[in-house]
């Protein structure tokens, strides 16, 4: 394997470039002989595997291995941490999870918290995805118009995506809590304090709101890219065809944006089902179990309850994983259809 020296830079930057190039060149020389030796040993064609190996090792250690361990935990019982010390129980954990009088009534289930989590997650996902798609679409359409300071607004709407979910949740908690900014405003205007994070309906509303606020920028970006990909002359043709504006949106924009819409819907669904950190910080799953999500349930069952039931949490994880797998397949199918369109 030949060592490659960076091309000599020109002009004013040559000094700085040489400064960076020198250690790089040294590094290349250092790895040159072992790589050359390896290539002689395994042949040029197999060198690709040598380059892939480091990432595969990390992927195996931190993704694939935990996945297998999780499945092993889900078919074992007891409270021991090491799989070798855990007795095999077969599908008992799954049977326990699915032991319900009616799946529509969490109270009829033996593990009612899991089903409350499923119910809350389903409700949250439906509201959140609907709101997310609607607001992202409206925002993308507005940001695609020739408005003043368009670049600024695009940045503003994308900015929350860059924030850590915990920072987002803490900021909104500071606004929404009993003595928070919003209640201070309401009382200053002579109104009554509202317990936004204590009232179950308000709590669900606000976790949907905060989630939409935090992630909308990402989906807006996808839709904006889709809108910009629609050729401008189609709109001019529609104008020549004397098409009313609502009909342009309904008959031209929306059908041509549909592939992007499907991606947004499926991605938002997956993200919605996975929701944990923002809700955990904002409401802690409360009041009671009003905002307890499936992932939160898994976390509590495995790590935070007095009796750490790894097996049950692992079984719930597998169920959640299968749901996410199905949604991912749907997303892939939607993406492929978009590529083929």
């Amino acid at each position: 394997m030949a060592s490659a020296e960076p091309a000599a830079p020109r002009g004013e930057s040559s000094g700085a470039a040489r400064l960076f190039a020198a250690p790089l060149s040294l590094l290349m020389r250092m790895i040159d002989w072992p790589m050359s030796a390896l290539q002689r040993l395994i042949g040029e064609r197999r060198m690709a595997y040598a380059f892939l190996l480091p990432n595969i090792v990390f992927f195996g250690l931190f993704v694939f291995l935990p996945l297998i361990i999780n499945v092993v935990f889900s078919v074992t019982g007891g409270t021991a941490l090491f799989p070798s010390q855990r007795p095999y129980v077969g599908g008992e954990q799954y049977a326990y999870l699915f032991d319900c009088g009616s799946f529509l009534d969490p109270n009829s289930c033996r593990e009612d918290h899991f089903w409350r989590g499923v119910s809350n997650t389903a409700r949250f996902t439906v509201f959140q995805v609907t709101a997310m798609v609607l607001f992202s679409l409206v925002t993308a359409v507005v940001l695609n118009m020739k408005i003043k300071a368009r670049g600024f607004f695009r940045a503003v709407y994308f900015f929350p995506v860059l924030l850590s979910p915990v920072v987002v949740a803490l900021t909104w908690k500071w606004i929404l809590q009993r003595d928070g900014l919003l209640n201070a405003g309401i009382t200053a205007l002579g109104g009554e304090r509202i317990l936004f994070l204590v009232d179950p309906s308000w709590a669900m509303f606000w976790i949907v709101f905060v989630s939409v606020w935090a992630h909308m920028g990402f989906y807006t970006l996808i839709l904006l890219a889709g809108l910009q990909a629609i050729p401008a002359d189609l709109y001019e043709a529609a104008e020549m065809d004397a098409t009313p504006r609502w009909r342009v949106f309904w008959r031209i924009t929306l059908p041509l944006l549909w592939p992007n819409m499907i991606v947004v819907i499926v991605l938002a669904l997956i993200k919605g089902v996975q929701t944990f950190d923002e809700v955990f910080v904002l409401t802690g799953g409360g009041p009671g179990t009003a905002t307890l999500m499936v992932v939160h349930y898994i976390y509590e069952t495995a790590f935070s309850n007095q009796v750490q039931n790894f097996g049950l949490a692992a079984a719930a994880s597998v169920v959640l994983g299968l749901v996410l797998f199905a949604l991912t397949l749907a997303q892939l199918a939607a993406s492929n259809r978009k590529g083929a369109a």
Partner: peptide, 28 residues
């Protein structure tokens, strides 16, 4: 443009890609 009663044939054709030939012609 919509109120001038003119029709234009564009260089790029500007056909609505999701509509059939019939729908393209019937749209206006």
């Amino acid at each position: 443009a919509s109120e001038r009663g003119l029709a234009m044939v564009f260089q790029s054709y500007a056909l609505y890609p999701h509509m059939s030939v019939y729908k393209n012609m019937a749209f206006a």
